[in-house]
Write a protein that binds this DNA or RNA. Structure first.
Ligand SMILES: [Mn+2]
Ligand SMILES: [Mn+2]
Ligand SMILES: [Mn+2]
Ligand SMILES: [Mn+2]
Lengths: 220, 220
DNA sequence: ACAAATTTTTAGAATCGCCTAAAAATGATT
DNA sequence: AATCATTTTTAGGCGATTCTAAAAATTTGT
């Protein structure tokens, strides 16, 4: 598989775990920052190779084999991200770009060894689950902060937007994975939320609250 | 720069430290396992980008900038080889193929951190020197075993052929870098050599002796 | 149901990197 | 100097990936 094919598979995989059903040409084009006509071209090629189910005008979905390949690439991406943070002291806002390159390195043995070196991590630096060697993949239990009612508590377990700007914002306000968060109040006006993080209190906009994932505590 | 351009620069660099003078189209084609016409194509492109000096029928050489780029790639290649051996327990015959991929990863910070993690190594697993961050590069003092006179001693510091088959042969005969070697005798008939390695004695063919580098001891 | 708006595909072209076959230049031999 | 062999370049083409512009299909709105 070429780098380009791998990137398309990844994009299709990510789109299918968001919206429900089949994926549109335009959605892929937007995700990948290319033109729809280029997407159509590639979908034909991927279909020829048995990686996607594609029929003109009908949208696209991954085949068994396409899904397996996509998961292998995502596994590599996320393991490399862990490596960069754990072993090379990168911050969580720096690793994605580099992992975009490293994910295309082709060596099963390399990935197995890397996985072992890192102690078989289950999640990447952004809280996303790392697929297993044989394509096992389960999303973790989590809820957007913005969806939680006033009074509930939870632990921060992930981000939806993992752009460098958002991640740096979180750093600046000492919001990190593993942190306990409590919803103190919600403003009717703009849906911003008063939250407690450890000892601190903070008012976060709706946009922020809808990009932070919590694992709600049992007792809420 | 594309992967292909980087590979051509590397090939030209390596050829220029072997034979003397400018590099022929055919030599590059052979080194890279492509056709001469493809090489001509690429040389034009590299010349346009100011990476090589090229004039039709006159051979080619690296410009300042081309040499600098080539060294950067070789630096990455060799640092990754060290990483694979030191941190992921690969053997020295396994690392080259993977490093051929990793050398194209583009991130200065990544390489700086990797260099630091490895303790700023000076040589790769095959005894080849690792170019410095700013293009410093000096070949180490070494001599082919086949060139040494009977009675001389030295330490094994590198291999000329670093193919997996040769490296595995060396492993099998416990010849490793850092090993003390003494030339006991030379056969007139086929130039094979009787050598002593530590406690062991061994008869090696001329072909083997002309692919092992020693640093001759002062007193020889 | 039909026209308008939107989405998707096709047609045609560019670039990169490679190939084969033919032509041109260079170098060696008489 | 003329011929022959070798090296190198050119010409033309192919697959991969992308683009723009135009055509076709689908969806939406009245
Ligand atoms: Mn990422
Ligand atoms: Mn991630
Ligand atoms: Mn190597
Ligand atoms: Mn090496």
């Amino acid at each position: 598989m070429t780098h380009s094919e791998e990137n398309y598979l990844k994009a299709i995989f990510h789109l299918s775990r968001q919206g429900t059903g089949t994926i549109s040409t335009n959605a892929i084009a937007e995700q990948m920052d290319t033109k729809p006509s280029s997407v159509t071209d590639m979908l034909k090629r991927l279909a020829d190779k048995g990686l996607v189910n594609y029929k003109k005008y009908q949208g696209v979905s991954l085949t068994e084999s396409g899904r397996y390949s996509a998961l292998a690439i995502i596994r590599k991406h996320r393991l490399w991200e862990v490596f960069l943070v754990e072993k090379l002291d990168f911050t969580w806002d720096e690793v994605h770009e580099i992992a975009e390159q490293l994910e295309h390195i082709n060596s099963e043995k390399l990935i197995d060894r890397l996985d072992a070196l890192l102690g078989h991590p289950k999640f990447d630096p952004h809280g996303d689950p790392i697929p297993g060697k044989n394509g096992e993949f389960k999303e973790r239990d989590k809820e957007l902060l913005s969806k939680l009612p006033v009074g509930s508590k939870g632990v921060c377990v992930g981000v939806k937007d993992s752009s460098a700007t958002f991640l740096k914002f979180l750093d600046k306000n000492s919001i990190a994975l593993g942190q306990q968060i409590e919803v103190l109040d919600k403003e009717e006006f703009d849906n911003s939320m008063h939250i407690r993080i450890g000892e601190e209190q903070l008012l976060v906009s709706h946009q922020i609250a809808s990009n932070l994932y919590l694992k709600p505590s049992e007792d809420s």
